[in-house]
Every structure is written in structure tokens, then in C-alpha cells.
Design a protein around this nucleic acid. Structure first.
Length: 847
RNA sequence: GCCGGGAUGGCGGAACUGGCAGACGCAGCGGACUCAAAAUCCGCCGACCCUUGCGGUCAUGGGGGUUCGACCCCCCCUCCCGGCACCA
């Protein structure tokens, strides 16, 4: 090897070498058995959809998780760091249509390609626990869970209005509709269709899902807020209004029962059953109502429900206010929704913006019933605040709104015309999909026995392999007679299988439990193993799943707990949502043409530089602007580390003893101090803040100091034992961020028999760097000999003075007053006050 | 409308508990090495002012406040990103 070549950092050569070595050691990233006695740490990144190509968002996500996993290994934890594939879903069917490739084949080859990319980048996954959701070994347990939930009444079938994406040719869950558009097709409006569908009763857990958020302190506030909004709990009262001359009652939902004396009409949703009944006898009304329904539908489908003009039609009938017997007109209004509350409201124009607008338009009386406490006379209506007292409300006058709500609810309950209720925005999870590439729903339709479960011993219900995929004509499975036709497990007569498949979010709702026992053929997982690993200590992924995957998987965990399979209430103690990777101010996307391929970056600069840049360019929770020049900068830095270490490695290898304090030179002491400060900083960041950008910056600072002291390192002015110590620890600090280079340099420095006097334990010879102990900061060595204290006069910086790090207020004040510049500034003036913050600052207040 | 997050040099960002604003990197400029280039190394690098000095003033979206001292805390406002929204 020529000198010239030796001085060139060649990431491709280093990374290829170590990738091969790591591949030859399948136990390297494997978790140890439950009985190992070490503290456990479960770090998890959200599993990807196998599109066939990793994108930069993946690289960023996994680089964060990988750094953490490697750090925890070095800290001596038993680490579970798995990876898998969210492998069912529509793109595979689309690809099948386009290329005539079977979805299974397409998916599995994509998985192989992405796995290669991950291995090339060097992510520390234990592939022995790999989970692929489209394989029967996995999806049979989806079916098993479905049956258990069916038995518990948590799965049901009903006909209802559902979201239909014409592009996907399937039903979508509410969570998959974004502002009226399909989550997969930004330009496709979702239609409403009446279909019979399978639902999971997630609403049974609405309150617990909401309450649990308060305890998830390790989750971003943003995600917790989004989930709270989505669950949308609202406390209120339901009140029955009798209808004059008819037997029906109208049950209204209101959060402001205290304003009921101000109700001057009752408003029904156009689909309300009473409206249907009234319209039957009134042809004119019928026409007008169908117009309202049409309008609502259009508005809903175009996503701006809130924007349509409020209008309605009077029914000619009257409702009776149960508190005062008042007759008020019944209207049908296009702003009342059938699927929220009871589909009927009492309209109080004096104290509600929408009711006010509506009443103005139709000259419905507006009555003041709430007044601010301090006001003798009324205020401008509508007055919507709850900070007030009741007026014009009979015996309830003078009560506060809160008090009145309580009293009115009591009266309603006592007289059996109403009750306090809680309403949620959250709807049950519609899981039926009229597509092929998903988990078959394990149910059978029998003419005699109705809905019949597929018996457990017949699971899995296998997805047929040979199938023609089209996007029309309902579920593709319904056109496979061998699949559809089956004998009823109960009566043995001919019956038909359910041909819908499950939403792919079912797959990802529990996959992380499977990782703990991925090969189990008798159960989804062994409860005792899951209990050891759960909760997940750190979950990392994109915020786009805040109310999809992250609410479904919380639900699933609670269901499994209630099935007695696990003990934890929540899947993940801590959640971290990384920011997006953007380029030129926009999210990377094919249509914008600003996609940066990870493969390109790895080929040009190496995996270490690519992933280290992903950590360096921004704090992990913020959006990251990808600048290729920045990757080049990291690559240069890694080259400097490589050259520096390679240059001094022979000397470092030659000494075996620990550095003696007495042998330390001035320069060695300064470098050791910087080292220990760097250790402290990075360790601290791993413990919570995760500002890996500043961790990388700290390592750069340390390297810059080493490089500046190159002459002393070479001359022996810094003893070889100290050099060795500095370089060893530099490499260890680098290991979570640039694992390939760290492994190479670890070997270069002679890892075998390495004694790391900074650590409690000495790794045995040949220890891979992954198992080497993380450096420990020695506060004594990190301590500065002298620190600089800024001196301010009247809050303005004048100079700095150097003092001992533990100098007390007196000493600092003395040093400040002794300073020439300070002298000059205060000459002829009076020092009124001196503020000294030891270790921080001095401020002289001078007149 | 409600909720959450954000705004700091040409750029990405740092300043962790209220105590030297701009760490680290990118870009740029100057220099060394070289026949030359690449690579590498060294230095400069917020704005303005003058009396060019180990000088002064201004500066963290805008305005006010608290404080000896504010990028940081409080109030008001602007803009950007995200979520929810005829939710009764």
C-alpha cells in the first residue's frame, strides 16, 4: 500500500468489508434471551411499506433509531431492534395491473431490494425476527384476532354510509379521508356510499384512549393534541322535545342546556327519521328536504362542509320545550348533521353563532337568556361565553351557566325527559376493503346459520394465488369460486366466504408484538416474552401516522390486554416523530422532481456520511433541508478522522498501559479535558434531548482540537498512552453515528485487549465495537482550570475576566473590579450594586 | 374559529436553568502546497459607523413589559407549517 493511497479515506472499501463481516455474524444484532439479567431496551422504527426503494425519510428515521440502538448496546442493555414490512396494500395490485406481475411476487422482490439497501447502509436490525405482514404466518393471526374480537362483540357488521374512493375502488376508514380526499390519492374526492361493512368497535375504548393520552408524557404534545381532537369528546345533555299532535319525540343533543329557555326552534338533520316521516305526508317538504340532502352531500364530498350557506325549511310542526311548555317550530336545516349527536338540535340564536345566522335569515325570534355577570343590561347578541348568569329563564334566573347546566340536567333525569351524555367524534373503525391484497376476513355467510366464524383450526384462510385483478366489479375474491364456495362449519351445507379483506392498518396495529416471538406457530406471540419487552421504550416514526396507525395500535393494545395476552395499557412509552426531509423548500416527491436517492448518496459519499448528515443537518424533530454539499462536508470530516487516527494508530497500538496522570503534559491535559466534555455532552443528549446535530458538532470540535495539536501528538509531547486514550474514545463516540468507520478504526487501534480505563469494564479481546462500553465522563478531567466570566456594566458587556472555576462571588467581584477596562468605565461614577452569579456573570450597576 | 409547533448571518443550524448571540457545517473570499488541477492544510467571513482601536453602535419576525441582565419569561401583533372544524 503506497503512502498516498493510505491517506485517502475510501468509504466504499471500508463499508463493503464490514458489511460482509457483519453479515457473517447473525447473532451480532440479536437480542439476548429473556433470562439474561440485563436491563431491556426495545427501540423500534415504524415499519415501511415495501415500495421497492428506500427514500431519505426512511434513512433519517432509521438513522435516528440505529444511533439509539447502538448507544444502548454500548451502555450494556439487552436491545431489541427489529425491522419488518407492512406488505399488504393497494400499490401491489396497481403494479399487478400495470406490469402483470402477481402482487406477492412484486412485494417480495421489493422487500428483497429494500433489505439490501438497509444492509448496505448498515442498520443494526436482527433479521431473524423480520416480520412480513403479507405472509400467512403473519396474517393468520390477524384472522385469529378478528375472531377473538368478534366473540367479544368488538367486531360487527352493519350497513351504513361509508367513504368510497373511486380510484382505490374500495371503502376507506374515516382516518383515511383527508379533507374529503383519499389519503392515497390527493386529487380524488371520496364519495359516500351505503354498504354493508365490517367494523371494529374502537369507540368502546374512546374514553380510555383519551384518558391514556394524559399519561403518555413521552409522546410529543402535538400527537397527543391531534389524537384528542380526533377523539373529540364533548360533554352535554340530551333532552326530549315532545312533538305537538304526534307521538314521536325529538331527542336533541346540546352542550349548553343552560340556554334552553332561549331555544326558539328545533332543527333537524335532513336525514332525521322524523323528517322522513313528515315528508311522507307532505310532498312539498319532501322535495325541499331532498334538495338539502343533495347540498349536504355535495359539500361533504368537496370537503368544505363548513362553507355552505345555512338554510332550511319549516316543517309546519311544533316541538314542546319540556322546561316551560313553550311551543317552538320544527325546521329542517342543512347545517345539522345526522352522524353527530342525535341529528337534532335546539336552536338558541341568542347564544350560538350559527343559530344566530339562521334565525336572522328566517326571522326566527332571538332571545337573551345569558348575561355577563358584571352587566346590568344585556350585551350584543350572540353572546356565546359560558361566563355569565341566566336571565329570562324562570326559576333558574341568576344561576351561573355551570350551575344551571347541573340543575337542568337533574331536572331532566328526575322527570325522565333527558340525561347528561358524552359524545365522541371518533367513529368505529371500518375495516372492510373490497380489494385482493389484504388479509381475508375469516367469516362465512350461511343461509341457515347466518354469519359463521371460520374455526381456529382452519386458519389461515389463505389468499388464493392465481387471481385476475381488476378495479371494477367488487371484491376480486368474489370472482374466485374455489375461494368463495365453502361448507358451513356449523351445518355442513354450501355456504360462501366473506370476500372483503382487512384494512392494512390492522396489520400494523400489533406487528411490534410479533417481533418479540416472530417464529411462533401456535400463537401471535408468547405472552411472557411480550411482557418482558413491552412497553416499547422508544418508538420512532413520521408524524403522518399520528391519528392512523398510532390510534389503531393503542386500541389494539387495549384489546389484547382485555383478552389477557399482555399487561401493558399502551404500546409505547415514548414516541418520537422526526421531521420531514425536504429539498429546495418542498417535500421530496417524484412530481416535483426533487427526490434524492439514498443509493446515490451512499455510492458517492458512503453510508456513514449519508446517515451522519441526516443526523447533523437539523435536530431530528424538525424538517431537514437536504443539501448535498453538506453530505460532502461530513464526508470530508470523516476523512479527517480517518487520516488522523490512521496516522497515530501505530504509536497508540504500541502502548498497552493506561495513561498516568503524572505523565500528562499541558497539551495532553487540555485534549483530555475536551474529550471528557465531549463525552458528557453526547451522553447527556442521548439521555433525552436527542439533538444529534450538536452531538456531531461536538465530535467535530474535538477532532478540530486534536488536529490543531497534531504536532504535539506526533512529537511525543502528548504521551502515546494519552494519544491512545484520546483516539480510542473518539472512535467509541463516533460509533452510533458512523458505525462503519468506527468499526474500521476500532480494529486499526487494536481493539483486541483494549483497556479502556474510562470504563467500568474492560471488553475482552476481539470485542466488536458494538459491545464495547460507552465512554464515561470523568468530571475531574472535564473540569476547566480557569473559566471566563463576562463582566457587564449596566447590562452591557465590557470585558471578560479569568477566574478559577469554583471561584466564589467575592473572588469574582474582586477580579472584575481589578480589571483595567472596568476601572476606566467606572472612574468618577458610583457603583450602586454588584450582581455576581458564580460561574456565570458579573454585572455592575453604575450611576 | 379552536388547538399544536415555528421565525436567529448568504444557507442549514448553535446558545441545555434568563448570564459573552451566531458553536459546528455549507457557501464565499484570501493564502500554502502543485508546472497545473484535484485532494489536503492555514486564515477571514452578521450589519453599520468612525477618530482603523484589543474601538463604537445596531442586531435573534414587529411592538410593549418584567429583570441588574431577555433569542429564552409575560402581554399584544404579523407571517409560516401542521391538526381539527356547520361537532350543536
Amino acid at each position: 500500500m503506497s503512502d498516498e493511497k493510505e491517506l485517502r479515506y475510501d468509504p466504499a472499501a471500508i463499508e463493503t468489508k464490514w458489511q460482509q463481516r457483519w453479515a457473517a455474524d447473525p447473532k451480532l444484532y440479536a437480542a439476548e434471551p429473556v433470562s439474561n439479567g440485563k436491563p431491556k431496551y426495545y427501540v423500534l422504527e415504524m415499519l415501511p411499506y415495501p415500495s421497492g426503494q428506500l427514500h431519505m425519510g426512511h434513512v433519517r428515521n432509521y438513522s435516528i433509531g440505529d444511533a439509539l440502538a447502538r448507544y444502548m448496546w454500548m451502555r450494556g442493555y439487552n436491545v431489541l431492534h427489529p425491522m419488518g414490512w407492512d406488505a399488504f396494500g393497494l400499490p401491489a395490485e396497481n403494479a399487478a395491473l400495470k406490469n402483470n406481475t402477481p402482487p406477492r411476487e412484486w412485494t417480495l422482490s421489493n422487500i428483497a431490494a429494500m433489505k439490501r439497501q438497509m444492509q448496505r447502509i448498515g442498520f443494526s436490525y436482527d433479521w431473524a425476527t423480520e416480520v412480513t405482514t403479507c405472509l400467512p404466518e403473519y396474517y393468520r393471526w390477524n384472522q385469529w384476532f378478528f375472531l377473538r374480537m368478534y366473540e367479544k362483540g368488538l367486531v360487527y357488521r352493519k350497513k351504513s354510509k361509508v367513504n368510497w374512493c373511486p380510484e382505490c375502488a374500495t371503502v376507506l376508514a374515516n382516518e383515511q379521508v383527508i379533507n374529503g380526499y383519499c389519503w392515497r390519492h390527493e386529487d380524488t374526492l371520496v364519495e359516500q356510499r351505503d354498504l354493508e361493512q365490517w367494523f371494529f368497535r374502537i369507540t368502546a375504548y374512546a374514553q380510555e384512549l383519551l384518558d391514556g393520552l394524559d399519561k403518555l408524557e413521552g409522546w410529543p404534545e402535538k400527537v397527543r393534541t391531534m389524537q384528542r381532537n380526533w377523539i373529540g369528546r364533548s360533554e352535554g345533555t340530551e333532552i326530549d322535545f315532545a312533538v305537538e299532535n304526534r307521538s314521536e319525540k325529538i331527542r336533541v343533543f346540546t352542550t349548553r342546556v343552560d340556554t334552553i329557555f332561549g331555544a326558539t326552534s328545533v332543527q333537524l338533520a335532513p336525514e332525521h327519521p322524523l323528517v322522513t316521516a313528515l315528508a311522507q305526508a307532505d310532498a312539498g317538504l319532501k322535495v325541499q328536504v331532498s334538495t338539502l340532502i343533495e347540498e349536504q352531500k355535495k359539500a361533504r364530498e368537496s370537503g368544505d362542509v363548513g362553507a355552505i350557506e345555512k338554510h332550511g325549511v319549516p316543517t309546519g310542526h311544533f316541538a314542546i320545550n319540556p322546561y316551560n311548555g313553550e311551543l317552538i317550530p320544527i325546521w329542517v336545516a342543512n347545517y345539522v348533521l345526522m352522524d353527530y349527536g342525535t341529528g337534532a338540535i335546539m336552536s338558541v340564536p341568542g347564544h350560538d353563532e350559527r343559530d344566530f345566522e339562521f334565525a336572522k335569515k328566517y326571522a326566527i325570534p332571538i332571545r337573551e337568556v345569558i348575561r355577563p355577570v358584571q352587566n346590568e343590561v344585556g350585551v350584543k347578541l350572540p353572546f356565546v361565553s359560558e361566563d355569565g348568569v341566566l336571565v329570562n329563564s324562570g326559576e333558574y334566573n341568576g344561576l351561573s351557566c355551570a350551575e344551571a347546566q347541573k340543575r337542568l340536567q337533574e331536572v331532566a333525569v328526575r322527570n325522565a325527559f333527558g340525561e347528561a351524555t358524552v359524545t365522541f367524534r371518533l367513529k368505529d373503525w371500518g375495516v372492510s376493503r373490497q380489494r385482493y391484497w389484504g388479509t381475508p376476513i375469516p367469516m362465512i355467510h350461511c343461509e341457515r346459520d347466518g354469519l359463521v366464524q371460520v374455526p381456529d383450526e382452519q386458519l389461515p384462510v389463505l389468499l388464493p394465488e392465481k387471481i385476475e385483478i381488476t378495479q371494477t366489479g367488487g371484491s376480486p375474491l368474489s370472482r374466485v369460486p374455489e375461494f368463495v364456495n365453502v361448507k358451513c362449519p356449523k351445518c355442513g351445507h354450501a355456504a360462501k366466504r366473506e370476500t372483503d379483506t382487512m384494512d392494512t392498518f390492522v396489520d400494523s396495529s400489533w406487528y411490534f408484538y410479533r417481533y418479540t416471538d416472530a417464529k411462533n406457530a401456535n400463537a401471535p406471540f408468547d405472552s411472557s416474552i411480550a411482557q418482558y419487552w413491552f412497553s416499547i421504550d422508544q418508538y420512532i416514526g413520521g408524524v403522518e401516522h399520528a391519528i392512523l396507525h398510532l390510534i389503531y395500535s393503542r386500541f389494539w393494545t387495549k384489546v389484547m390486554r382485555d383478552l389477557g395476552m399482555i399487561k401493558n395499557d399502551e404500546p409505547a412509552q415514548r414516541l418520537f416523530t422526526q421531521g420531514m426531509v425536504i429539498k429546495d423548500g418542498a417535500k421530496m416527491s417524484k412530481s416535483k422532481g426533487n427526490v434524492v436517492s439514498p443509493d446515490d448518496m451512499v455510492a458517492r459519499y458512503g453510508a456513514d456520511a449519508t446517515r451522519m448528515y441526516a443526523l447533523f443537518a437539523a435536530p431530528p424533530d424538525r424538517d431537514l433541508d437536504w443539501q448535498e454539499d453538506g453530505v460532502a462536508g461530513i464526508s470530508r470530516f470523516l476523512g479527517r478522522v480517518w487520516r488522523l487516527t490512521a496516522k497515530h494508530a501505530p504509536a497508540a497500538r504500541a502502548v498497552a498501559s493506561e495513561p498516568q496522570n503524572s505523565s500528562k503534559t499541558q497539551e495532553g491535559g487540555a485534549l483530555m479535558r475536551k474529550l471528557h466534555q465531549t463525552i458528557a455532552k453526547i451522553t447527556h443528549d442521548f439521555e433525552g434531548r436527542w439533538h444529534f446535530n450538536t452531538c456531531v458538532a461536538a465530535i467535530m470540535e474535538f477532532v478540530n482540537e486534536l488536529q490543531a495539536a497534531d504536532a504535539q501528538l506526533t512529537s511525543g509531547e502528548v504521551p502515546a498512552a494519552v494519544v491512545r486514550e484520546l483516539l480510542h474514545n473518539l472512535v467509541l463516540l463516533l460509533a452510533p453515528f458512523a458505525p462503519y468507520l468506527a468499526a474500521e478504526l476500532w480494529e486499526e487501534l487494536g481493539s483486541q485487549g483494549a483497556t479502556l480505563h474510562l470504563s467500568d469494564e474492560n471488553p475482552p479481546p476481539g470485542t466488536p465495537i458494538l459491545r464495547a462500553p460507552w465512554p464515561k465522563c470523568d468530571p475531574g478531567l472535564a473540569k476547566e482550570d480557569e473559566i471566563e466570566i463576562p463582566v457587564q456594566i449596566n447590562g452591557k458587556l465590557v470585558t471578560v475576566v479569568r477566574v478559577a472555576p469554583d471561584a466564589d462571588a467575592k473572588a469574582i467581584q474582586a477580579a472584575a473590579l481589578a480589571d483595567e477596562k472596568v476601572h476606566a468605565r467606572i472612574a468618577g461614577k458610583t457603583v450602586v450594586k454588584v450582581i455576581v452569579v458564580p460561574g456565570r456573570a458579573v454585572n455592575l450597576v453604575v450611576k
